[in-house]
């Protein structure tokens, strides 16, 4: 099977601080990659570079063999190109970032509705639907299915402030799935949650893994990473220190840094 994602030599500095020092890795379609490491190791920055929230200084990112980002060529991407490239990825934030003025369902539908409207105006069709009304009906049904899949359909008409943290994060996952990203990214999806409700969110992610969704998960939950991930990447000080199967990483760590890290984390 081909690699769906190929990341090569990504470097990123903020001012004089180099946060990412030459990151390269690849991911196969349908696999889940967990990224672990202490805070400040660059995990979140890497995820943000993949989602174009930060612009890497150097390196390339390819999806399905197509280069969607190249820092060295100093290419200037137009807004619409960045948008198109962006939609290869979905991102679930640590602090959910649901739109507070919209209901759960509206949160899921918003982006696709805007996209459909634009494309129907421009190309006369979206996903085979010729009118906005038809497209919206399709989007509406899809949103309900997505909410169903994260167990949130019964709260579809609630606004975020009426939902618990775990419920909000499940809606956020449904929202990230709405535009069918090739790769779904999670940025510490349970860090902002009370320990007793992390389970409901982790279960949703587990179910996605069972359905062979390609995922990159930045997490502090070692047990969860071990259980769900097909591959685990340990980042330290802006570099990929070690990468391998969960067994290799957790049971047979090679590098000194990883052994220290695991010792600290597992003691807590």
């Amino acid at each position: 099977m081909d690699n769906i994602l190929e990341v090569k030599n990504i470097k990123k500095s903020f001012g004089k601080t180099q946060v990412l020092k030459d990151i390269s890795f690849s991911l196969k379609k349908g696999k889940a990659l967990a990224i672990i490491g202490s805070s400040g190791s660059g995990k979140t920055t890497l995820l943000r570079c993949l989602n174009f929230l930060e612009k890497a200084n150097e390196g390339t990112i390819s999806v399905n063999g197509e280069v969607i980002f190249s820092g060295s060529e100093n290419q200037k991407l137009s807004d619409s190109e960045i948008r198109k490239n962006r939609l290869h990825f979905g991102l679930v934030f640590q602090s959910f970032n649901l739109f507070p003025q919209y209901t759960a369902k509206e949160n899921v539908m918003l982006a696709e509705q805007i996209l459909a409207k634009e494309q129907i105006k421009k190309n006369g069709e979206y996903n085979g639907y010729k009118t906005i009304k038809e497209a919206y009906e399709f989007i509406d049904n899809k949103a309900e299915d997505l909410l169903e899949s994260v167990g949130m359909k019964h709260k579809k008409d609630f606004v975020p402030c009426e939902l618990s943290g775990g419920q909000q994060q499940r809606v956020a996952i449904a929202r990230a799935l709405a535009l069918n990203p090739d790769i779904l990214c999670f940025d510490e999806p349970t860090s902002a949650l009370d320990p007793e409700i992390t389970g409901e969110v982790l279960n949703v992610i587990k179910k996605l893994a069972e359905k062979n969704t390609t995922m990159i998960i930045v997490t502090h939950e070692m047990g969860f990473a071990k259980e769900v991930a097909d591959e685990v990447m340990f980042m330290d000080n802006g570099k990929v220190e070690e990468m391998g199967t969960p067994e290799e990483i957790f049971s047979n760590p090679k590098s000194e840094r990883l052994r220290e890290f695991l010792k600290t984390v597992l003691r807590i």
């Binding site: 989602n51 174009f52 929230l53 807004d79 948008r83 939609l87 990825f89 934030f93 970032n97």
Partner: peptide, 17 residues
């Protein structure tokens, strides 16, 4: 919060949207 803007960005929305 800045996260609102970023959430919009990753969903592919333009600045004015």
């Amino acid at each position: 919060p800045k996260g609102q803007q970023e959430a919009g960005q990753v969903l592919g929305l333009k600045k004015n949207q």
